[in-house]
């Protein structure tokens, strides 16, 4: 156990250092930053991105990418909200929504494996298709009105706003799967070299499809948090920032687009870094335009730190 802890510190020291540094700088820059309220805020805002990023880590590990999760988030949210409106028992509605999310993931995976297509283009097309479906199903306007008990579960008034609790639970589960199960080894093996993995007896197509299904399911789970947070299902949810962050954060955390790596904790820290920067710049009152520059620069810094570490 001690050994594993030491290994994690070793593996993540770049991002951890960045995170600590950012927090120190902002604490000095703004009196409002290091307050209990704001720390809760940062954690709360990270929840959705953490869940999306965890799904993305699975996909990235196989050397794939999923651009459609933002649209999946919007569409499954609308599906769930429509089911709520039809008075479907809400946990059943959520289960159905997750199935829809998995269905979208399966479609992605099926096109990628069956036709040997490139994940980028398949999921780009799916981004467009699913977004269109969300707009059609919602007729373009948000669906308001969530069941009380649903709100209680997904944004209850606990100490650690429930969102982050769910997100960390998801992350922990994912980390367990990746570190301790054969499945976790298989997906990394596919990322390392699909043919070699196939030769070693791994059913590569099935495993590849499964990671997109996981990403779709987790996008749906994050849509529940989104709905609970907004108190509505929005057809334009997850239009850009969400899915771009979900790709950027895992890579900041040391994952690679070439596959073969699956660092869940790195992805979580990556999300926290981005959330801290946004919050800190808001607290300092930095204008929106300058914020874009700063966030871009931080992403570049983070990948540089990562490439520094890789060389050693």
């Amino acid at each position: 156990m001690g050994n594993m802890f030491a290994r994690s510190i070793q593996r993540y020291r770049g991002v951890i250092a960045t995170l600590v540094l950012i927090n120190i700088i902002f604490s000095f820059a703004s009196e409002y930053y290091m307050t209990m309220y704001n720390i809760m805020n940062i954690l709360d805002h990270s929840a959705i991105s953490i869940i999306l990023s965890v799904g993305m880590v699975f996909v990235l590990a196989t050397g794939g990418i999923d651009l459609s999760i933002g649209s999946t988030l919007a569409f499954t949210g609308i599906v769930a909200a429509q089911l709520f409106k039809m008075q479907v028992f809400w946990p059943a509605a959520l289960v159905l929504a997750v199935l829809v999310g998995m269905g979208i993931g399966f479609t992605n995976g099926w096109f990628i494996t069956h036709y040997r297509l490139q994940p980028f283009i398949v999921t780009l097309a799916m981004l467009s298709i699913v977004r269109g479906a969300a707009l059609i199903l919602s007729k373009g306007s948000p669906i308001v009105g969530m069941p009380e008990s649903f709100l209680q579960v997904f944004s209850g008034p606990r100490i650690l706003g429930n969102g982050i609790f769910i997100a960390l639970l998801v992350a922990a589960g994912a980390a367990f799967i990746i570190e301790k199960t054969a499945y976790g080894r298989y997906i990394r093996a596919i990322g390392g070299g699909e043919e070699a993995a196939y030769v070693c007896g791994i059913r590569t197509n099935r495993i590849t499809r499964s990671v997109y299904i996981i990403a779709g399911a987790l996008a749906t789970v994050s849509s529940f948090l989104f709905m609970a947070g907004m108190n509505a299902a929005e057809p334009i949810a997850g239009l850009t920032t969400e899915w771009m962050e979900a790709i950027a954060a895992p890579i900041i955390g040391g994952n690679s687009l070439d596959g073969g790596r699956a660092y869940i904790l790195g992805a979580v820290i990556g999300v926290l870094i981005l959330s801290c920067i946004r919050s800190g710049l808001n607290m300092m009152g930095v204008g929106q335009h300058y914020q874009q520059i700063a966030i871009g620069a931080v992403i570049i810094c983070a990948v540089l730190i990562d490439s520094l570490r890789k060389d050693k």
Binding site: M244, L257, D258, V298, I300, V303
Partner: peptide, 12 residues
């Protein structure tokens, strides 16, 4: 640096 993410950064 990996191009996908580096150019996503410079894009911002």
């Amino acid at each position: 640096a990996p191009p996908f993410i580096a150019t996503l950064g410079t894009s911002g």
